[in-house]
Design a protein around this nucleic acid. Structure first.
Lengths: 200, 200, 200, 200
DNA sequence: GATGAATGAGTTTTCATTCAT
DNA sequence: CATGAATGAAAACTCATTCAT
């Protein structure tokens, strides 16, 4: 909490941000400390002033990366009115094929690869909290929909199912080149909403 | 003169099998060729008589591993009578907590890590075919269930959903330490069967 | 001189001959014993029945190669009548741009590379005898020319010079891509013959 | 803050120089990076701070080696007055039997071996420029001789011949143990000067 | 604080040669 | 005689981390 620590935290972010293009070019696991230093315009030794080790650097990069996308998620969902749209927005991660989202998706794929290798405990923990974040978001969306009388109370039972379905789509999209995520999601969501939407 | 020709395919399997414990101890990506050679009780150079390179070794190990489990899957499902049981069996991979299955599950986790890193094309292709194998198995189970009049024809619409749900459970179980796969699956499957099962 | 030895000598030649294309494809220094065995259609171990070691193989290949070209040289020079033509023929090695001669020239380049590396004493010795062979050929050609009264007796003084000039052209052609061997040789030889040719 | 930046070019030279004895002992192609590091009194990794790869090391060693001898050539020729002496000096490389020149000559032999193996493009190019350097030096010497009225204008026609003769002597000396370079050169040069020298 | 030069452990891969059959 | 399976020494190269300045 001392001013120094704040500064350190800031510097970590700066370095992480400076690595965005680098990550894209060479991949998360292939970056070297030398490249990080160069990208950030600092000395190799200086990197170690702010980071414990290389893992710590990758962790920070992912942190910044994902926090940004969480923020974007909240940002975008704010302006969305109907619950159905919000839930569809929840699937944006796997359905949106914009350049930006593809980059983000690929970044998450690399991240997941590291997590599955169980190479980094803090990254595993962070992944847990990310999942929980989105799980809670979905829960809130659904609850709000019930409160708004857009959804039937039964919708509550489907929160986990929807979330797990989305995870499955993530995995399929990451591993199966011919998988049509958009088609699967739309079919699934429309079916679900048949059941949970309150009819006037 | 003497027919000393060795069956390469068989030797590959033997070496791969000899690495099972090794894999468990150090992880798939961390094995060294030296360790493989030692585990198989052969020289380092001999390893290269049977494998192109280190990736090829890992690939063979995974192949043997997964083929075994495919065979086991078919074996076990043969004796199962009801369609519901068969579908539950389809979820055995994520629900079964026996020592053996946990090892298999962890093997697949490591494998997935490599696939997600997109480091090895042949492994990506192999993963694709694995997914297709199980997808087809599920399709057959459901079709059979419909033919047997155990399931309603509407069940066909749920094949993809079930498969994606399972994938989602796989991913959650791999990344979320506190996730209760068994509970989620049972709830989901019971709900599904409420809808697709033919009532007498 | 026992029949076995003769047989062995023959087998060596056979193996060497079988390697001609191989040499061309991968280069003299890069051939492996395994490739030699395969090219010759025999087992790797059998190669060692006929050759001491890898160097011995290369040596035999070069031997066969060069002997063949010595034979060709003698063959072709037989039909040549005038001394001037014979001397020009002596320069065929560096002036002839037929596919076949280019292959031969490149073979000799590789061979020289090994000799210069002083890696193989027997090859050095063999090279010495090759040089002597051609030096003697030139000497004979010139002597014959003097006897035939085509050349002046002074021509004897130029034998070494011509031979060394040819060596120089060999080296230049091997190392300088833009060197025009034909042009240099023709100019040189025409100048020389101005001086040594007997005018009627 | 402190300017610890190291002069890479200088360090390359230092390492190269430190390898002179090593080269002599084991040969240019047989040195290992480990040996280079040890000879230079640095770590193996440090070698790679200054050199791209092993070839780069060898190249630098040759560069330093040859540059030094070019410099010596120019140095020595400066003090030589008569054109004849200068041309004899041009043949110093093959005639001089001092310890130092023998080492230099052997170094060049090894170098040529690499060039002839066509293993290294930059070394081939460098060799081309070396040849051109000496060719130009000879041209200048001859032109100067003509200007000084020491040589007849006809001398111009002999530049290429002299150069190629020297190359031939180089090759002979490198491959024929019993070859008397000094004798051949002296005979040749005296004959040539009979023709090109201006008589008073 | 900042730096970047120095480091060396650790890994993959090749291939001539041997020798049991 | 012939074979080819087995071998292991040997070598290049990478890169996270340290620490003197």
């Amino acid at each position: 909490m001392s001013p120094k620590k704040v500064n350190k935290e800031e510097r970590r972010r700066e370095v992480a941000l400076a690595c965005f293009d680098l990550i894209h070019d060479v991949g998360m696991k292939n970056i070297t400390v030398a490249q990080v230093a160069k990208s950030a315009g600092i000395g190799k030794g200086t990197v170690y002033e702010y980071f414990e080790n290389k893992e710590d650097i990758i962790f920070e990069i992912i942190n910044v990366h994902i926090e940004y996308h969480h923020k974007m998620f909240l940002e975008k969902i704010k302006d969305v009115k109907s619950t159905k749209e919000k839930v569809f927005h929840f699937f944006d991660f796997v359905m949106n094929e914009t350049e930006e989202n593809i980059r983000h998706f690929n970044g998450y794929r690399e991240y997941l690869s590291i997590v599955l290798a169980e190479e980094n405990e803090s990254m595993c923990n962070f992944n847990t909290s990310c999942t929980e974040f989105f799980q809670n978001q979905l829960k809130e969306i659904i609850e709000e929909g019930i409160n708004n009388e857009e959804l039937l109370p039964i919708a509550r039972n489907f929160v986990d199912g929807i979330m797990l379905f989305e995870k499955g789509v993530v995995l399929m999209k990451m591993t199966q080149t011919s998988f049509d995520a958009k088609f699967s999601c739309e079919k699934f969501l429309n079916n679900i909403f048949e059941v949970i939407e309150k009819k006037q």
